[in-house]
Design a protein around this nucleic acid. Structure first.
Length: 420
DNA sequence: TCTGGGGTCCTAGGACCC
DNA sequence: TCTGGGGTCCTAGGACCC
């Protein structure tokens, strides 16, 4: 059996843990740059605030209903996620952290254990230890565990735990599950399936295997099998990334090359750091810039430059160099730029390294520089040491006006407690 | 004025090899 | 009438996830 534990309204719940006056009140958390709604408390959902809605469209609704609004605080959410995952890990022999707020557990050897009682214990303990409410679904396949999790969240009297362990329960659950809510069925397939009168997960399982294969390929066939109780997805262990991207929208529109160069240098440095963390080199670097595609009354520009690196590398200085050169080749004057990004692809392990006959760089020396820089930054805080090209102007920095304190990771942000 | 960021997998078709 | 058989690699596009 597989278990899926999923945090309820994760980002909103994180904000609440250290600010209990928000309990019972509507909260939304916005994406980077305070753009769209990406998390909502139950109260905010009840107000009809949709996921992904641009914040500016909600101004009135937010004011009249006194909705608390937060910028994304990924430092806080990341740390809270660790706490949740660490607690879950004490309950199962194998855990797969699937996303910042979700984890699968493998329940092998649990044949003689009351899964409902076990799951209830997991849910209560995580909530008690971290302050984050969670739900758990248990079933014979990952896709069914996802279904079970939805019911654990939906019905209050389940107390956060739902087990699908018989065919009767499976049939009942699938008949109550809309096809678009199934893990692996997105908007496109959902529309297509409904066109063929497949409206529920159950309808889907009643189609023939060949029909599913023909309509949705092998991916759809796997989902079909999983829903019928035959596992196709196993527990997965983390593997190295095959591509690494750092991109941001700017807090304000940029028209000059200098601040965009600074941004791109920082994005390249971030990619380099991610590469070093997983002990990989990149062989290809792409840099892109574009204007705001939503501003239809303004001149639009999009361009990207793909560069083959002469020697695979994870050196910040070298990647910045490529990125800036690429940027210079695509930057055009006269546009209001909204976003830029750097993508590193064709990622290979640190060794063996294919050299370049004409390479003049002292790689061994620069490797040592990077190692020292990483260790200083890990001891004294992010970006204590950086490359000059990364600059200090930060004209491109994110807009995050509603940022909450980093309660758990920054000494100056610790809560004050007044004792009477 | 104002709309996020970061990934993966699969398939079809083109181009090439012997 | 009638024109082989078996492969690989690369890319773009489509689909999905959080």
């Amino acid at each position: 059996m597989f278990g899926l534990i999923d945090c309820n309204n994760f980002y909103a719940s994180c904000e609440r843990v250290f600010n209990p006056s928000l309990n019972g009140k509507p909260i939304v958390v916005l994406s980077n740059n305070d753009g769209c709604v990406i998390a909502r408390s139950a109260e905010a959902k009840k107000l009809g605030i949709p996921m992904g809605e641009p914040a500016y469209k909600l101004k009135e609704l937010i004011e009249t209903n006194q909705v608390s609004v937060f910028s994304s605080n990924y430092v806080l959410y990341g740390d809270m996620s660790h706490r949740v995952m660490n607690t879950i890990a004490t309950f199962a022999p194998e855990i797969e952290v699937y996303s910042i707020d979700e984890a699968f557990v493998l329940l092998d050897g649990f044949e003689n254990i009351d899964l409902k009682e076990y799951g209830g214990n997991v849910v209560r303990t995580v909530t008690r230890n971290t302050g984050i409410p969670v739900s758990m679904g248990i079933a014979p396949t990952k896709t069914l565990a996802k279904v079970a999790n939805k019911f654990a969240k939906k019905y209050k009297n389940y107390k956060g735990i739902c087990v699908i362990d018989t065919d009767e329960k499976r049939e009942k659950a699938l008949k109550l599950t809309e096809i678009g809510d199934v893990w692996g069925i997105g908007r496109r397939y959902s529309n297509k399936l409904q066109y063929y009168s497949v409206n529920t997960a159950w309808d889907f399982t009643q189609r023939s295997k060949n029909w599913v294969r023909h309509t949705m390929g092998v991916v759809g066939e796997r989902t079909w099998m999983e829903l019928r109780g035959i596992p196709c997805f196993e527990m997965e262990t983390p593997v190295d990334k095959k591509s690494i991207c750092t991109s941001r929208s700017f807090g304000e529109r940029l028209t000059e090359l200098a601040p965009i160069s600074e941004a791109v240098a920082n994005f390249a440095a971030s990619c380099a750091e991610k590469l070093r963390t997983q002990h990989s080199y990149g062989c290809v670097l792409t840099v892109f810039i574009h204007t705001n595609p939503f501003a239809t009354n303004q001149a639009q520009y999009y361009n990207q430059k793909v560069m083959q690196l002469s020697v695979p590398t994870n050196d910040s200085a070298e990647l910045i160099n490529y990125a800036i050169r690429g940027l210079n080749s695509i930057f055009a004057k006269g546009y209001r730029y909204k976003k830029a990004g750097v993508i590193v692809s064709e990622i290979v392990p640190e060794r063996p390294l294919q050299g370049d006959l004409f390479d003049t760089r002292n790689r061994e020396k620069y490797n040592r520089v990077m190692t020292v820089m990483d260790s200083l930054n890990s001891s004294y805080g992010k970006q204590k040491v950086k490359l000059a090209a990364q600059g200090f102007d930060r004209k491109w920095k994110l807009k995050n006006e509603k940022l909450s304190p980093c309660y758990t990771t920054n000494m100056t942000d610790l809560m004050n407690i007044n004792v009477k």
